Amino acid sequence: MAQRSLMSKLWAFFLPVMVAGALLALSRVRLEVPRVVIEPPVIETRDRFLGVAVIGDVAWAVGKDGKIIRSEDAGKTWAQQATGLHINFQSIAAWDDQNAVVVANRGKGLVTSDGGKTWQEVALPVAEGGSGKVLRVRLDPQGRAWAVSEINLIMRSVDRGRTWQRLTEADDDVAWNDIAFAGDDTACVVGEFGRIACSVDDGATWEPRESAVEPSLMSVVFRDSLNGLAVGLSGTVLATDDSGVSWRQVTVGDLDRHLFDVIWTGQRWVAVGDKGVMLTGDAEASHWEIARVNPADFAWHIALAQQGDGFITVGLNVGRWADGQWQLFGPRFH
């Protein structure tokens, strides 16, 4: 009994000492926690893209808060490019896979000559008192860049977007949304409230054209020197066969969705717009098919550009349509 009592006393003395020693040893152990850096996806759910340009397998998309992304494999993978600007980029046009121009809000623009590795900020001659929102930039058959803006502004650059010349004075409160070219000297612009104006002297003077529609026209394109198509809000479609001198309204069935952009693919007209709508028509603008880029896609698409046998379109999401198949790039959101 005496020996057992002694052992108990020894344990009572040494146990706290052993515990204290163990805790001291643990306090000196440095735990290495692995650091995990999660990179955000290039295309995020919160993104809103407003413009797209395609050269072969190279594609650029530009949009909200100064974001530019580029793909070199027809959209399979994308990389973000740094610009230093945090304003909305409205439109982009590209001469080749190295040279491109971007137009934006507040009279700002960007140019690159190295595929977007670096972007140089440029100033656009916008009107005083407005927001300076330049809405679209297009290239003419001669390779010059033309841009349209609010407050009746049409401008042109002959040095790949580095400097700009204003072709109209800011004397009319109308926003031009797009411009297209019927040959070397003829151009037409479309805009708010069904407004159309054309120039037959390389932009020196502009004459209004009758459209007989009230919804705003958002996009225009010519497939040759005579035949063109304009699309707009509430499913509005206009066609011309005389270089924009006269325009006729085209009936395309029960379509009331807004149309935001149209292209000529070499075989047919293709337009995209609200709620995932996709409108396709034959060369004579007489037979039309109303569909969506994908039956499950209800996102708005504001710009598109031909890519191979299909097209890449941007807006609330980014994707490619070809051979009846829709490939979504980035997160699913509609």
Rank of each mutant, 00 (worst) to 15 (best):
D172F: 15
R156M: 12
S157E: 07
G203D: 10
A170K: 12
D171E: 13
R166D: 03
V200F: 10
G203S: 07
R166S: 15
G194L: 13
V189Q: 06
D201T: 06
V189S: 09
A182K: 02
I151Q: 09
A175N: 02
M155V: 11
A180G: 15
W176G: 02
D159F: 10
V174D: 04
V158K: 05
D201I: 01
T168Q: 08
D185T: 12
I154R: 03
N152L: 01
V190I: 07
C198E: 04
A204K: 15
S157Q: 00
R195M: 13
T163I: 14
G183D: 10
R160V: 06
V189W: 01
T163L: 12
T163A: 12
G191I: 11
D173F: 02
E169K: 14
I154A: 05
F193Y: 03
A180K: 03
M155P: 08
A187K: 10
V190W: 07
A180D: 09
R166V: 14
V174Y: 02
D171Q: 11
C188H: 02
S199T: 15
A182D: 08
D185A: 15
D173Y: 12
N177M: 14
A170N: 14
A197D: 07
R160I: 09
V190C: 04
R166P: 15
R156P: 08
V189C: 11
F193D: 11
T163V: 11
R166W: 08
G161Q: 02
F181D: 06
A182N: 08
V190L: 05
A170G: 13
G194V: 12
V174S: 04
N152F: 05
D184P: 01
E169T: 10
W176R: 06
S199R: 05
I151M: 14
A187C: 01
A180C: 05
T186F: 02
G203Q: 00
W164N: 04
N177S: 05
D201V: 01
R195E: 06
D185Q: 14
M155Q: 13
D172L: 14
I154Y: 04
S199N: 06
F181W: 07
R166G: 15
D172T: 12
A204S: 14
E169S: 04
R195F: 11
D171A: 12
A170E: 10
I154F: 01
R166K: 14
V158I: 13
G194M: 10
A182C: 02
G161A: 09
F193E: 00
I196Y: 03
A204G: 08
R160A: 14
D171K: 00
D173L: 13
F181G: 05
R195V: 00
N177Y: 08
G161S: 10
D178F: 02
S157H: 04
S199D: 11
Q165Y: 00
S199Y: 11
C188S: 09
F181K: 01
A175L: 03
N152C: 07
C188Q: 03
D185R: 14
N152W: 03
R195L: 12
V189P: 00
R162L: 11
D202T: 13
N152A: 10
